[in-house]
Nucleic acid binder design. Structure first.
Length: 871
RNA sequence: GGGAGUUUAGCUCAGUUGGUUUAGAGCAUCUGCCUUACAAGCAGAGGGUCACAGGUUCGACUCCUGUAACUCCCACCA
């Protein structure tokens, strides 16, 4: 069969993914093997594959594929998150394009559109994961709004309510005026924003005096309930207890004193607006101030403002500034930069707003989850995130779980027209508990809460609810697959999601949800900016996969992703990946060329050495990879395998055993080469599944598949063979370098003289050495040889005899440089050994080592000096 | 303002409990090669006072203190 010039990834990817699916390798059911379970961090149902997913899912796939090769029953559960705000925004936008407004639709009509949209576009990201080669169990695809899942979310809400962990409360919340919904603190992004600081004069009642306050939000003065100064502030002491008048509307507000106010900021006097600022609200609570809410939910001013009613808050700001100037209330303005909160979803400036919301009180629930991480029951990789987690969990705040949205899990609270309510899953249940609780006389009419639950209130159940661990407790799947093995996720959602999953796992399964959390880095672009949709700096993954191949993309992202460190994404690493697939492909082509030339002979001594050496290197690397994998150093492990394949196998081993042109190859060499190649493919397979599977099948007729092949146990590498191999490699490199520097063309043959006391060391490798440096013969000697070119490695010296006269000037220069270097080194070692305190304190093996360095350096200096004399 | 992290070759990073030569790898660069698997390749080479300043030690990239720069998280300065 004729093999193509390069690896053609497109057809191989499709062929093998379908083959794996047909064979059912990815589908898992409980059996007697140990389970290795991973749940995917569910991407937004609106999502398309970006770099973060690519990194995250490649890592999971590497772990899962390796576990499968180690004999685990692996189960990697795919799925999507309903992402209430993001999806609802998408659907609203889609409707707007059809000239339909959300407000013109009933809730049910809107949800019909939303579900239709979800069916149509919601699966895109899952299809993209298939393109990447992910070993996901597609029989278990889950969605956070599946029937059972939905019921579990509602039931968890009711349960927490009954246990007293959920309450309804008026609180200052972050309000998104565009989406008209509450946001959690985590959904608010603070950005440095240039603003104006306005200094306003308030008259003091009954005097001619004025008090000047500074504010960035003059449009909220109509909501002022007080002016506050520091009690220690001499400037204002006489005013405390008096009243000021709000400009333009002349409302009478008290002047109060509180430590909260800093004397040296602004004027030291603060306007207190409890309805529109978190701190002012707390101050208001403390001093019993009136709460005057002057804003509508869309950010326009309402009747309570008295003036500028109906104007948007920012338009109102401009207009009121004019009015204040006209009325001589404006003292001055200053440029001022401060952090302003923006909605993560809509980018609207977040409005602090007093609102009635549902809350989970987290303090008590969090304790077992805090413990689980601190006592090591759950390991964080890298460990530095433990501190972050502890800090957060020890200061955990209550969780606002209601969202003013329709797409999501509707809050199971039912109200009568007076606002009395009960919590129940269905209307019938609600009527029953309402009747028990309130004993109404007539018929009961209840309406359900309009709001939905925060998306994270469903995703925190993910690790067990994908196995229906809550809806069908004790079922075979949950018993077998839970707790899961490793969660792979981005550090930015440690609080949103990771912490809460641990809380839910502890509360409902009485067990941790996962044994390890592996935090990936954040993917950044070449300029160091985080890759994000809004910056538009994330490349199109599907296009990259088409261009470079899935294996190359996986390689490129894995080679540059140390655990927990951010990674700068650069397309050149994908190129490196593609070049690597090509290298593997060409190694295959070489070995295939030998297929027809296998002889019945056995290996010569020299090939026998190559076989032993390769076997030892392979064992050594297998050991290393096992260690690195155990420490989650996936990037390091890949580098190690890469170098084993490229350098050791291709550059050294294959060249050593390669027969001459159209010469036969010994049967055992051929067979062992195929064996080595197969083991390399196995090591590489978790990272690059497609090409390895393809090459595995092309290498030999096979009835099984690589992805199911079990790893063979690691054997001890032969250290003596490895040392001899190093000697050989050093000699080859040194001699090639010498040839290069003396302008010997590759085709010019040489005669090689080896000056050594241990000829036997070279007997088993001499023909390899001769071939690699193009020597027509090798002679041994114990005496110096008169030759123009010589090379020193270790204790031995090599002389190159060439037919062509050699100019020795350059060589002489170089040797002299090396001599100076060596002599400098010698002095430093002698100094060290001459230091009494070193000899007294250092460990004996360290001293022995230094002595060896000393004698080695001396030997080498002698050899070089000898050479220099002959030149 | 509080906390965490980073700083090693032009770029991206290794460097495990301080002592395997005077610090490693990949990419990029340079030189020579279209050598019968691979120019997406082969054979070589050059390149770093380990951010800076002190300290501990016989010995520091590694441990301690301080400084600077960058990054992230948290926080109520209008």
């Amino acid at each position: 069969m004729e093999l193509s010039k390069n690896f053609e990834h497109q057809q191989a990817e499709q062929k093998w993914y379908n083959h794996w699916l047909d064979k059912g390798y990815f589908f898992s059911t409980p059996d007697e093997r140990p389970a290795f379970t991973v749940v995917i961090p569910p991407p937004n149902v609106t999502g398309i594959l970006h770099m973060g997913h690519c990194l995250n899912n490649t890592i999971q796939d590497v772990l899962v594929r390796r576990a499968a090769m180690q004999g685990y029953n692996t189960c990697w559960v795919p799925g999507t998150d309903h992402a209430s705000i993001a999806t609802e925004a998408k659907v609203v936008q889609m409707l707007r394009e059809k000239n339909i407004t959300k407000s013109s639709l009933s809730r049910d009509e809107f949800l019909q559109y939303a579900w239709k949209w979800k069916e149509q576009y919601g699966g895109i990201i899952l299809e993209q994961l298939k393109k990447m080669g992910c070993r996901l169990d597609w029989n278990r695809t889950s969605f956070t709004m599946d029937d059972d899942y939905y019921k579990s979310v509602i039931s968890v809400f009711i349960d927490l309510y009954k246990k007293g962990h959920i309450y309804r409360g008026k609180r200052m919340i972050n309000w998104d005026v565009k989406a008209k919904t509450a946001l959690s603190d985590e959904e608010v992004i603070r950005k440095e924003t240039k603003q104006q600081l306005y200094y306003l004069r308030y008259s003091i009642e009954g005097t001619d005096e004025k008090i000047i306050i500074a504010t960035v939000r003059p449009e909220t003065i109509m909501g002022d309930s007080a002016i506050c100064v520091n009690p220690a502030d001499e400037r204002y002491k006489h005013l405390v207890g008096k009243f000021a008048l709000v400009p333009l509307i002349n409302r009478r507000i008290p002047i109060i004193a509180d430590d909260y106010v800093t004397m040296d900021f602004g004027t030291g006097a603060l306007k207190v607006t409890p309805a529109h600022d978190t701190n002012d609200y707390q101050l208001g609570q403390k001093h019993n101030l009136e709460i005057i809410d002057i804003l509508n939910e869309d950010g326009t001013l309402n009747e309570a403002a008295q003036i500028l009613v109906g104007e948007d808050r920012f338009a109102a700001r401009k207009k009121i500034v004019q009015l204040l100037q006209d009325g001589q209330y404006m003292e001055k303005t200053e440029d001022y930069t401060s952090e302003v909160g923006y909605s993560e979803r809509t980018d609207a400036v977040v409005e602090p707003r007093l609102s009635l919301q549902w809350w989970v009180s987290m303090k008590e629930l969090s304790l077992p989850a805090l413990d689980a991480v601190m006592n090591g029951e759950i390991a964080f990789i890298p460990e530095k995130f433990k501190n972050l987690y502890r800090h957060w969990m020890e200061n955990v705040k209550d969780w606002c779980i209601s969202r003013q949205l329709w797409w999501g899990h509707r809050i199971p609270a039912w109200y009568d027209e007076k606002g009395n309510y009960v919590v129940a899953a269905t209307e019938a249940d609600a009527i029953q508990s309402y009747t028990e609780k309130y004993k109404p006389s007539g018929s009961v009419q209840l309406t359900q809460d309009e709001d939905c639950l925060d998306t994270w209130f469903s995703s925190w159940l993910w690790p067990f609810e994908v196995f229906k661990g809550y809806s069908h407790p004790g079922n075979a799947d949950i018993n077998y697959y839970y707790p899961t093995a490793t969660l792979v996720t981005a550090p930015e959602i440690i609080f949103f999601w990771v912490a809460r999953m641990i809380v839910a796992g502890k509360e409902y399964m009485k067990e941790i949800p996962f044994k390890q959390v592996y935090f990936t880095g954040i993917v950044r672009d070449k300029q160091g900016r985080k890759m994000s949709k809004s910056l538009g700096n994330s490349p199109d993954l599907v296009q990259l996969i088409e261009q470079y191949g899935a294996d190359a993309v996986r390689f490129g992202i894995m080679i540059s992703s140390p655990a927990g460190n951010d990674l700068l994404f650069d397309e050149s690493s994908l190129e490196q990946g593609r070049n690597f697939t090509n290298k593997v492909w060409n190694a295959l082509k070489l070995v295939k060329m030998w297929e027809a030339r296998v002889s019945t002979n056995t290996a010569t001594d020299n090939s026998a050495f190559a076989l032993q050496w390769m076997e030892s290197r392979l064992s050594q690397v297998k050991e290393e990879v096992e260690t690195l994998m155990g420490q989650f150093r996936l990037s390091e492990a890949l580098k190690t395998i890469y170098s084993l394949v490229w350098d050791d196998f291709c550059s050294w081993y294959l060249e050593w055993v390669k027969p001459g042109f159209e010469q036969p190859i010994a049967a055992d060499v051929y067979q062992k080469t195929i064996g080595f190649f197969t083991e390399l493919l196995q090591l590489l397979h978790p990272y690059m599944p497609f090409i390895t599977e393809e090459v595995y099948h092309l290498l030999q007729e096979r009835t099984d598949d690589l992805c199911e092949l079990q790893l063979t146990p690691v054997s001890k590498p032969g250290m003596a063979i490895l040392a001899q191999g190093n000697l050989l490699k050093e000699a080859i490199s040194g001699l090639r370098d010498a040839r290069n520097k003396n302008q010997l063309k590759p085709k010019e043959e040489i005669v090689l003289h080896i000056q050594t006391a241990e000829q036997d060391t070279y007997r088993t490798i001499e023909s390899i050495l001769a071939k690699q440096v193009n020597a027509k013969s090798i002679a041994y000697t114990t005496e110096a040889v008169a030759a123009a070119i010589s090379v020193v490695t270790g204790k031995d010296k090599f002389y190159i005899e060439s037919e062509r006269p050699i100019d020795t000037a350059a060589q002489k220069d170089e040797l002299e440089k090396e001599l100076v270097h060596l002599q400098g080194f010698l002095v430093s070692v002698e100094k060290k050994l001459g230091n009494e305190r070193f000899v007294q304190n250092a460990k004996p093996e360290v001293i022995a080592l230094e002595r060896k360095k000393l004698s080695d350096a001396k030997d080498k200096i002698n050899l070089i000096e000898g050479t220099l004399k002959t030149l």
